[in-house]
Structure formats: C-alpha cells, structure tokens
Design a protein around this nucleic acid. Structure first.
Lengths: 358, 358
DNA sequence: CTGAAAGCGCTAACAA
DNA sequence: TTGTTAGCGCTTTCAG
C-alpha cells in the first residue's frame, strides 16, 4: 500500500544549523557573501557558459572554501531528475548477482548515476514493499530481477507511473519491458549436446523451477534437446528446487538414488553444480572421473573448483553493463520501442565432464 | 571537488505531467479533491492521531485510488532526513563484502532505511568522488569500508559536515569514529597456534598488505605469535599483495620456491586461500595432505571446497547487521561516545590442515 | 480536529 | 552577463 512505510515520526530540527553550530552552506549563503544572485551561483557551479569566467571562478572558489555540498534532494525536487538508478535483486550473496550488481554499479558511476539498492529474497511481499519504497525515492529508472512467481501485476503501479524499467536476467511473461539476459535455452542445449557427445544417455537436471524464466527456459532446452536426440525423458532425473548450493547437494543425492542411475547432470546454475559436486563426494565419487556435471553462469569460483567446473558462460559483466546502459537510454527516450538484448552463452569445458564410466 | 560531478544538463520538462498526460498526484491534488488542506492529507497519510478517523480513511482511500506515491525527495528537503544509508565498499564481488552488504541491506530494510551504494575498488580517487557524491544525496549516515591507504584526511569533509559515519571491517588510524569489525590479531593467533600445535614450524603468510588495517593486524598477530612460540621469522615466507584469488595462487608458488620450503600457510582471507589451494595443485600437491592452509573469514564457499577450508570465522552476518544498527543509533544520538564493536573470531577446523609430512 | 502560510535548497523562465 | 520571481512536494508551526 502506498500509505504504509511512511516515516513514522520525523523529528525535524528545523534543519538550519549543524551540530557544531555553523550554519549549513547553501547557494543562498554563497550568493549573499558574493553579492550575486542564487541563480548566478547555481549556474557558476555547474560551469554554465552563461556566467562570466571571473564570476565562475569566484563562486567556485568560495564554494570550496566554505565546504559547500550540492544538495541533490533539492535539485531533484526542482528538476524531477535524481540521477538515481533503483536496483531490485533477490539476493546479492549469490555471486552471479553480485557480479551483475558490480557491473551495474560501475557503469552507473561512469555515467554519473548512483545505485539505490533493494533486495527481497524470493519473497513476493517483500519485493512489493521494496519496489514501492524505491519508487518513493523517485529514481530516474529501475533495474529489476524479479522474485520467482512475480506477475505483470506486481509491476503495474510502476508502469502506470511511467517509471523507466528494465528486466535483468529473469523475464516476466506478458510484460512489455526492456530486457537484458541470456539465451538460456541455447545455453542448456550446448551443455546437453556436450554431454551427449561424450556418450552420456541418462542425464539429470538439477534445479528445475517453473517460477523463474531462466529455469523454465533452461529446462525447456533440456527437454527439447533430449527429444531431438531421441533420448527418453525421465521425470525421476529432474530435481525441482531453487538454485542454491544446498539444493545441489540434495538434488544429486536424490537422482543418485534412482534405480537406473544417471551418469551426468545439468545444473540450473553454478551454485547448484557446486552443491552437486559436494554431494558426489559424500557418496565417494568425484565429478569428472565418476560422474559429469555441467553448471551454468561461470561465476568466478567455477574456474577454481577442483576439478574446475565445466559450465555455460553467461557474461555477467557484459549483462550488467548493458542493462545499465539500456536503462539510461530508456530514461532518455521513454517512448522508444522496447528492446530485448539476449546474449549468446558459451560452453566452457573444464574438468567436471568426461565420457561415462563403463 | 564539490563542483565536479554536478548534473551536466538537466532537461527538466516542467515536471507537472506524466508521459501519458495525466497529472502526477500530489498531496495538493488529493487535498483539492477532498476539499481539505494539504496539511490534513499529510497527517492522515502518516496515520497521525491528530486527524479524525473518518478523514483519515477518506484520504487514504482516495490516495490509493489515485495511485498516490509519497515523494521522499520533497519530504527530505523539508525534514532534513532521507532515511537513506550510504554504503561505500571497495568491491562487492568479493563474497566477504557481498555477505556484509546483504546483512546491512536486510537490517536497513527492517528499520525502514534504504541503501545507496558506491564502490571504488582500492582507488583513493574513486573513493573520494564516490563519497562526495553519496554525501550530496544527504544520507542520514554512511557506512564505509575504506580503500587501502585511506587517511583520516579523506573523511574530514564528511566529519566537518557532521555526517554520522561508521567504519566497517577496516579501520583508519587516527579517526575517532564508530567501528565494527573483528579482532583480526586474535584470529591469526588462533590459526597460527592451530598450525603450530599440529607440528608446523615453517609457516608462510600470504597477502600481507600494510595499507589496510585488517591485513596489518593479521600480520602482526602472525609475527607476534611466531615470536611467542620461539619460532624464527623469515621474510621469504611472506607474500605481500592484495587478498585476491590470483594473488593466493602467485603467493603460494613464490613461497614454494624458497629453498627451505614452508609446510603451511596462513592466508589473509579465504579468497587468497582458495588461490593458494589451486596453486598447490599446479605443483601436484594437495591442501591438507601435502601442505596446510588456513584461510580467514569463512565465506560460504569455504565449507564447500575440496578439501573444505580450515579458516577463521568472522561472522559477516552479525558484523553487517551490527554495523547498520550502530549507524542508526549514531544518527539518533550524534553526540554519544564513540563505539568500537570488535567481534571475537573463531577457528573452524576443516580439511586443509594436518600435521606436516615427514 | 482542520486550515493558512511559510519555507526546505535548488533551477528555470523571463527581464533587465 | 546577471537578477527577479516562482515553484517543485512536502511538513510544521500557529491559529482557529
């Protein structure tokens, strides 16, 4: 609700002085000191060509001496621009999202924007509140990776308010918004064909989750590729869960308990794959030698695992950067046609895949 | 400089209408519709007991119907409070910092605050700009993990402006500010004594870096503990570098090239330890069996490495949470005495440490 | 319980 | 080249 979450009590002090008693320095103060108008000071500080060189220097010097600090809240109120990009993610503890966020922050900073961050796990109600609060800060636009199960409806208030919006990585069906992500179906195809090429026939899928588009698409890629190669689909080889380390561990154990064991597994993401590798060791088996594992994303640690993880590279750096760029363009051209940037993933073969043991 | 980084051009539209032509809904609009004053609407939306139940309900309902969204910029200008916490970190791709940030964000959200994020690598100039920009958004306070080599001077403008400030994890000498971090010396002591107890005598230190307090303290703990146990200090066993995966890999190779090889290494952080484990494999050796490694931090992946990493747990979740709480208290009581929260680390023995091979 | 009025710090017409 | 004026959307006295 829009009326929730307002500041419960605001003990304003009147706001004119600082703790130590000095008056806070504003354009007004500088203008008075210099006997010019605030308009002139404002222009001078922004290096406007309208103001005389000499004036500009005097103003800038005094501002520096007095320790003036630009008040973006005030400016925003006037210009209706905050130079803030709102970012809503479900979890930044997941290195995939941390890498995306780092790229976004860096790109934003280069372009003079700052990041207002909100996270919400996979909780729809927390997402609802988080996005509402973000919006109240009037970011120029928002970059969102929606919680699983989000519907177009969750975003209707943002769209109604003409908030520039781009979806990152995950895509909500029926939402006509800019999107930056990966060709997830294709990524799984690459992974599966690699395994099939190695001779695997019974291949599990760990981390199926219909609530998020990335998992839906990866899972579809899995099913379709099996079919295309004439391999049977066995629901016992599919483990449904969020893509976490813990679930990778549980998932591998479950599919290893199937009578007719698989010889390989495709994982929804690298985290799931790491968990699966661990689970394999609990069973006295080793990824690569005894069982093949393919991850997805190629987060930093993937290359350092032992054995190093064969995975599908999703280019977080580029994805994060482009999403920020697309958002900034969307802000500049609100009426431009909707853009979909879909990056082509690449298979990175490392040590966790090998021909099946006879 | 304060005059840099102002918005280059602000193409304000006048700001009264939205793309689709509807007027943006403000307190004013609601007040007119209801033939009450904006003051009443403002109070009603904030559930003030001053306004009659019936009025409150009418106002809140109309606000909801009209899709009213609270404008925090405007409110901030008036109240001098933004409910924003500025967070400055060097790198969120490092899981240690990602875990801290996640805890901070969560705590902030619980307390009705939002996070404005800035990162700066270990670059002092970027940090300078980032902190200046953060400040311009007038956060109620800032949480900072300073770039290596930062001096008290870098923070003087924030302090002069009475910005509530808390240092996280790293501490800058000579700065009288709230601090939340770990007892890093003690952590290394635990690690080193564990190794000495196992029988190791030549123990390397990877990731020495005088520019950050965490490394200085951990290194001191190393030197002192060696001395206390009557073990010689050998500079050839110290590898100086930032605590990254890559440097762990390089560092282990370097100390392994010393004529009188060490049998174990203490690493500045887990990332360095992971790199070292990888470097060991490049030499055909395995952490645990052939060489002992101790990390520091206990990030999520540490438990999942193979072998699982023996490390010093630093309680990121608690540290992040407490730092946010301390900042919120500092904001409420600007004149309260400076607080130092130093958490006691704990040794977590796992698979990468064992008695030295004979 | 409600309204009138002032003002937070800034920018943008428009005038001079 | 500079000044005047108005106002962004909100909160807060102070009166009624």
């Amino acid at each position: 609700m829009t009326t929730d979450g307002l500041p419960p009590e605001s003990n304003a002090t009147g706001g004119l002085r600082m703790g130590s008693g000095r008056a806070r320095v504003t354009l007004q103060i500088i203008a008075e000191q210099l006997a010019v108008s605030t308009a002139t000071v404002s222009l001078a500080l922004r290096n406007s060509p309208l103001v005389a060189e000499a004036t500009r220097l005097r103003v800038q010097q005094l501002a520096r001496e007095m320790g003036y600090s630009y008040n973006r809240s005030a400016a925003s109120l006037r210009t209706d621009r905050t130079n803030i990009l709102g970012v809503g993610f479900h979890d930044i503890t997941n290195p995939y999202f941390a890498e995306l966020l780092a790229a976004i922050e860096e790109t934003a900073a280069e372009r003079g924007r700052s990041i207002l961050l909100a996270t919400y796990g996979e909780k729809l109600d927390r997402q609802e509140r988080a996005l509402t609060t973000l919006k109240e800060y009037r970011p120029d636009g928002m970059l969102v990776c929606a919680a699983g199960g989000s519907t177009a409806e969750s975003f209707s208030h943002l769209i109604a308010a003409d908030m520039p919006l781009v979806q990152l990585s995950r895509e909500i069906p029926g939402l006509e918004l800019d999107f930056v992500g990966s060709d997830d179906r294709h990524g799984t195809e690459l992974a599966l064909e690699h395994l099939i090429g190695l001779g695997h026939r019974r291949i599990a899928f760990l981390g199926e989750n219909q609530l998020i588009s990335t998992s839906r698409n990866r899972y579809e890629g899995y099913c379709d590729t099996l079919a295309r190669h004439g391999l049977p689909f066995d629901p016992a080889l599919v483990y449904s869960a969020h893509g976490t380390r813990e679930n990778g561990l549980k998932g591998i154990q479950q599919v290893l308990d199937v009578a007719d064991q698989p010889t390989a597994a495709i994982c929804f993401n690298d985290l799931t794959a790491f968990g699966a590798m661990l689970g394999l060791r609990h069973r006295g088996r080793e990824a690569g030698a005894d069982f093949s594992i393919v991850g997805c994303d190629d987060v930093q640690e993937a290359a350092q695992w032992y054995p190093a993880l064969t995975t599908v590279r999703n280019f977080q750096e580029e994805m994060g950067r482009r999403s920020a760029e697309i958002l900034i363009r969307r802000i500049a051209e609100p009426a431009a046609p909707v853009r979909r940037i879909v990056l082509k993933p690449e298979l990175v073969v490392r040590g966790t895949t090998a021909p099946p043991k006879r």
